[in-house]
Nucleic acid binder design. Structure first.
Lengths: 147, 147
DNA sequence: ATGGATGCAAAGCCTTTGCAAGCTT
DNA sequence: AAGCTTGCAAAGGCTTTGCATCCAT
């Protein structure tokens, strides 16, 4: 990893090493806060900004990508083997992945048709997971627009 | 529209009417700022919060939906005839739509397989449009992590 | 020695909300 | 009258950045 970064023009530091390990140790869809909390377990001196910047760095060197589900928080998804989409539960915020390999060719075709150079694909399904469906109910009886 | 809102428990007001007209008059992918600017052209007294709340209301009654491309700004997309995806240019931020009707069945199937109740589908392709491809070049030679 | 990397604190930016007053129904 | 709406100003909440200092190379 140290070598890999060097070829990209970056240096390895103790903090960076801990952050990287923690990131790749955690599952997918990590938020800055989650990673920060994890990293702090082994080193209370690491700053929030450092974690944030390294998360950005990981994306920059192509090891992860940002995922935005529209809930105001940016998640970082490690780029893995197969391309995948997300099922995002609006109730418990849980994220479930599903394979999208077979959809990529079609999307690539769509992009080419527009002379568009694709960098990434995002396929998301929002809704309610089995558990939250019952709790959600049709409480949909708006009274006043009060958010 | 007044009747429609009434059935949902909401009232029609002069401001709301202007906001709705402006929203449906503008194209797709409108941001709060854009709609606010548009509305202010005909009524300088309408507040930002009112525009924002009405945009939320439009979504609440099912006439539009939020779109988050990860650039920090929420866009509001009128729900139209056919389901569609977006091609988002990372350079000029331009948004191009494309039909996704044929992909919906497959996604619905994915959701059912997880006993997930889908509320919405999102398909996005990020990259560079024809015009921005040349300008973008491979300036990808990171020097320091300075964001 | 260089120039990238860190920490902290402070900005930034958009999104939301508290309230008192104003309008539809 | 009852309660949804509106405007303004102030919070919020997360993402970025300025800087002086530190450290990898």
């Amino acid at each position: 990893m140290r070598e890999f970064l060097k070829t990209k023009g970056f240096k390895m530091t103790p903090q960076r090493e801990r952050i990287f390990k923690a990131f790749f140790g955690l599952g997918q869809h990590v938020t800055v806060d989650e990673l920060y909390a994890k990293v702090r377990e082994s080193d209370r001196s690491i700053g929030y900004a450092t974690v944030w910047r390294n998360l950005k760095l990981i994306c920059k060197v192509g090891l992860a990508e940002e995922v935005n589900l529209g809930d105001g928080v940016t998640r970082y998804d490690r780029i893995t083997r197969e391309p995948h989409g997300h099922l995002f539960c609006l109730g418990c915020k849980k994220l479930i992945e599903f394979e999208t390999t077979e959809m990529v060719p079609g999307l690539t075709a769509v992009a080419s048709a527009q002379r568009f150079k694709p960098e990434g694909f995002k396929i998301e399904i929002t809704g309610y997971c089995e558990k939250c469906q019952s709790e959600h109910k049709e409480a949909e009886t708006p009274q006043a627009v009060r958010w």
